[in-house]
Amino acid sequence: MKTGVAMAALLSLAGCNSVAPSFGGGGNLGGGGGVAPVRAAPAGQVYASQLPPPPPPPATPVAQTPPPGQTPPGQTPAPGAQPAAQPTKTASAAPVTREGLVGAWRVSSGGGNCQIFMALTQWTGGYRAASRGCPGQVADVSAWDVSGSQVVLKDSGGSTVATLSNAGGTRYEGTTSGGQSVSLYR
C-alpha cells in the first residue's frame, strides 16, 4: 500500500515537469507559439425607432349575472318580488403598499393613454418611476411614493404631479396638481 502511494506521488510530480502542447499548434513554450489572438466580434449599426402607443384602457366589462334577489336586465320581476338594493361602488379599504405598486401600470389622463413603470429604486422624492407616451403633467412623472392610503406621483424635483386613491382592486383614481383627472390601472 505504501509503495502504491509513493508511486502515485512520484508520477504526479513527474507530470508537473512536463510541458503540455499549446492549443495554437505552436509546440512548447520556448518555441514562441502560444495561443492565437481572438478576433473581434463584428460591429454592425444600431437602429432606433419610435415605439407604438400603448393599448387603450380595457372596455367596460360585459354584464354579469345579477346577485340573488335581482332581476336580470330585460326581464320583469316576479309578482310580489321586492327590488334588491343596488350595490354601491366604494373605494377599497385594502392598504396601499409600495410592493403592491411595483411594476408596469396603464394610465389614462387628459383623454390620452400611456404607461408608467414603478420600481423600488430610491429616487428624488421617493422611488423611481418612468412614463412612456404620457400627455400633459403625467409626462413629467419620474418618482412615486405612498403617503398614507394614497399614491403620490412626483416629478424629477420631488414636486407632486398627481395624487391618487384606491378605487378598488388594482385601480387608482385621482387628479393632477393642475386639476386634471388621472387613472392608474393594470
Rank of each mutant, 00 (worst) to 15 (best):
116 I>C: 13
105 W>H: 11
83 P>H: 04
68 P>S: 07
94 A>Q: 15
126 G>E: 09
111 G>F: 04
123 W>T: 08
100 G>R: 14
117 F>I: 02
133 G>C: 06
68 P>D: 09
95 P>F: 13
70 Q>C: 03
135 P>S: 13
75 Q>Y: 12
81 A>P: 06
115 Q>M: 11
122 Q>R: 12
78 A>E: 11
112 G>L: 06
127 Y>E: 13
133 G>E: 04
77 P>I: 05
102 V>L: 14
132 R>D: 13
116 I>G: 15
119 A>F: 08
101 L>R: 08
130 A>T: 03
107 V>K: 10
81 A>D: 05
88 T>H: 06
102 V>P: 04
89 K>S: 09
98 R>I: 13
136 G>M: 01
83 P>V: 04
138 V>A: 12
83 P>W: 03
135 P>H: 06
129 A>S: 08
130 A>M: 03
100 G>T: 02
112 G>E: 14
111 G>Y: 05
120 L>C: 02
128 R>K: 11
101 L>N: 14
106 R>P: 00
71 T>Y: 01
74 G>A: 13
77 P>G: 07
79 P>H: 02
71 T>F: 00
72 P>C: 03
80 G>R: 03
124 T>G: 05
90 T>S: 15
104 A>E: 02
132 R>I: 01
79 P>R: 10
101 L>T: 10
138 V>R: 01
138 V>I: 15
121 T>M: 10
71 T>M: 00
88 T>R: 02
118 M>A: 09
76 T>N: 09
84 A>I: 04
77 P>Q: 06
104 A>V: 01
79 P>C: 04
